[in-house]
């Protein structure tokens, strides 16, 4: 049997709303994924450092503050600098449909907005995040 997937669930920026992040963290854990939750108020640098140190296969970012365009871009740029683009980035939160195209183009593999069943997220992670 292969090692379980490792995913970092992160709250970047100043947003304190972590209900979604915690629900997803629990659901992934229940689905057999090893989850590292960063806690609140993380800078993109801290998140990428955590992912590298933890040898993570994926990073899930939760943003409800409207700062998603800035924060996703910074995390992806830092991964690129660290030559770690094999880490899959996905995310969720209050993200208008009008922004999803630009985020996907930036390299965000999937976005899960309010109302998404947790099962849809865990299934996606299990099929799309690959061991690095």
């Amino acid at each position: 049997m292969s090692a379980p997937l490792r995913v970092v669930i992160a709250k970047p920026g100043l947003d304190g709303h972590d209900r979604g992040a915690k629900v997803i963290a629990r659901a992934l854990r229940d689905a057999g994924v090893e989850v590292v939750y960063t806690g609140l108020h993380q800078t993109p640098r801290q998140i990428v450092d955590t992912a590298l140190q933890e040898d993570a296969d994926g990073i899930g970012l939760s943003i409800l503050s409207g700062a998603h365009m800035t924060l996703f871009a910074e995390v992806i740029a830092l991964l690129r600098q660290a030559d770690a683009t094999d880490i899959t980035v996905f995310g969720g939160g209050i993200i208008p449909a009008a922004d999803t195209g630009a985020l996907r183009e930036m390299g965000v593999a999937a976005l899960f907005t309010p109302g998404t069943p947790t099962r849809e997220v865990t299934d996606w992670v299990l099929t799309h995040v690959r061991p690095s």
Binding site: G13, L14, D15, T43, S65, G66, A67, M69, T70
Partner: peptide, 22 residues
């Protein structure tokens, strides 16, 4: 906005992307 609530000025590095948002 969140920088104000967290006691950061709008030009602080931690405020980047959050100014005037919520």
């Amino acid at each position: 906005d969140l920088p104000t609530q967290m006691g950061h000025d709008s030009d602080a590095p931690l405020a980047h992307g959050e100014v005037g948002k919520v």
